[in-house]
Amino acid sequence: MSTDLFFAWIGVALCGLGLFGFIVHHHLMRRLLAFNIMGSGSFLLLVGLAQDGRGPDPVPQALVLTGIVIAVASTALALVVLRRWYRVSGESSLPEDV
């Protein structure tokens, strides 16, 4: 394993951690945070994988920027739905599957 891929592996670890959290937690806020950790991990992976000595590559940077915007938007929408759900049902987690 080359040191170039250090960030990429950190990204993978973050993704794994996030996925774990996403699966074990039921509280919606925690799940949302877990999702954000996964997102950060994948951005790190995207940038980290490109650090292979070919010099700076603008494409991953552009992608990650777009990705961050999308993640922010998704999180905002999730928060709105979550708050509404909490107000309507008084629950902070989803009911069990029908």
């Binding site: 996403f22 919606l28 799940r31 999702f35 998704s74 929408l77 999730a78 739905v81 979550l82 509404r84 759900w85 309507v88 049902s89 989803l94 009911p95």
Partner: peptide, 10 residues
Amino acid sequence: ALAAAMRYLL
């Protein structure tokens, strides 16, 4: 509807 939307979003 909100529960369905939340589950869909996740």
